[in-house]
């Protein structure tokens, strides 16, 4: 198999505050890795290490065979879709311009091309096409979040990083989006790293699940392996639904 993401013995800190401790993780082409763990345990930080937003204080990150420390980060990031925790849409751009942001970095797009792409992506995240002309503040939280997903997917990248992407949407829509993500993955073989607090979601989506605790990967495995042989009471409690 083809190693797409390789994190070797990486630590991370914000100033004095050490957040990750010698984390190692290898992700192969087409995997859908789900990360769960208590708030503040370092999930987002781990994700940001993959696209070079967070630089490890020690260790080495390799993506698509290139070491992050020495490669062209801008070019690499365009090959990584990124759905941020809390959507974080660009407030001064319409939904259409938000969605087309990454493709627009590479080439100049006409309004028609943008509209066309925006409508396609909006459909994928189950939003009406009329939203394309709106500004983010004119959307509900759940709608913003889905536009954030659309923006990540429009990059049409081989890797998708998704940080609690379905947190703010209702149960039914969430089910739909999960199906959509699974079918997208099956179709395109995209590699996905997915953070969630929802254990059901983790079990449904994850081909592999990482449980994090206090800046370490505490246990990893398939849903089955984890439920059958939890490492300790912490894991059992976390998985206990």
């Amino acid at each position: 198999m083809n190693k797409v993401i390789e994190i070797r013995e990486c630590s991370a800190a914000y100033g004095e505050n050490a957040v990750l401790h010698k984390v190692s993780l290898t992700i192969e082409q087409g995997e859908l890795v789900v990360i769960i763990g208590p708030s503040g345990c370092g999930k987002t930080t781990l994700l940001k290490m993959i696209n070079g937003i967070v630089t490890p204080t020690e260790g080495k990150v390799t993506v698509n065979g290139e070491a992050l420390a020495s490669c062209d980060l801008v070019a690499l990031r365009r090959q990584i879709g990124y759905a941020v925790q809390g959507a974080k849409l660009f407030p001064h751009m319409t939904v259409r311009d938000n969605i087309c942001y990454v493709p627009g970095l590479e080439k100049k797009m006409t309004t028609e091309e943008k509209q066309c792409m925006a409508e396609r992506m909006l459909e994928m995240v189950q939003l009406p096409a009329q939203l394309a002309g709106r500004f983010p503040r004119q959307l509900s939280g759940g709608q913003q979040q889905r536009v954030g997903i659309a923006r990540a997917m429009a990059a049409d990248a081989g890797i998708l990083l998704m940080d609690e992407p379905f947190g703010a949407v209702d149960e039914i829509t969430r089910k739909g989006l999960q199906e959509e993500l699974l079918s997208l993955q099956e179709k395109t073989g995209v590699t996905i790293v997915f953070i969630t607090h929802d254990i059901d979601e983790a079990f449904k989506l994850g081909s592999r699940i990482l449980i994090m605790k206090e800046g370490c990967i505490w246990q990893e495995g398939t849903a089955r392996e984890l439920t059958e042989a939890p490492r300790d009471v912490f894991v059992r409690k976390l998985l206990n639904r």
Binding site: K48, N51, I53, V74, A75, L76, R77, R78, I80, Y82, V84, K88, F90, P91, Y101, V102, L105, R151, A155
Partner: peptide, 13 residues
Amino acid sequence: ATILEVAEGLGSD
């Protein structure tokens, strides 16, 4: 700053 971080993470030069 969080908006800047997103823009950077998406690959803006």
